[in-house]
């Protein structure tokens, strides 16, 4: 496919998304329900990973440094 500009390319990508998920055949309000559910799910995943992943990483680092690391630095 040849695209003139980014906008056209994005429109094509959205069209592919419509076709693959099958929501191409749905009515607009159904489309918006699907999109909002999907995007809010993705947003929640991103948000939770932003909030919790650093904490878990820090805890894991502390745990492993407690096992393998230098004990003197903590005591």
């Amino acid at each position: 496919m040849n695209f003139k500009n980014l906008k056209e390319y994005l429109a094509w990508l959205y069209y592919q998304y419509l076709l693959i998920t099958g929501i191409y055949v749905l009515e607009p309000w159904e489309k918006s329900i699907f999109n909002s559910i999907l995007f809010s799910a993705i947003a929640m995943v991103i948000y939770t990973s932003y909030v919790f992943v650093p904490i878990h990483v820090r805890l894991a680092l502390e745990f492993f440094s407690g096992i393998f690391g230098d004990h003197s630095s903590f005591s």
């Binding site: 693959i20 998920t21 099958g22 929501i23 055949v25 749905l26 159904e30 699907f34």
Partner: peptide
């Protein structure tokens, strides 16, 4: 797989 997924989504909306 994508075809089954598409039918799944359409079926859910059908039930709705």
């Amino acid at each position: 797989v994508l075809t089954y997924m598409g039918y799944g989504i359409l079926t859910i909306f059908g039930y709705l």
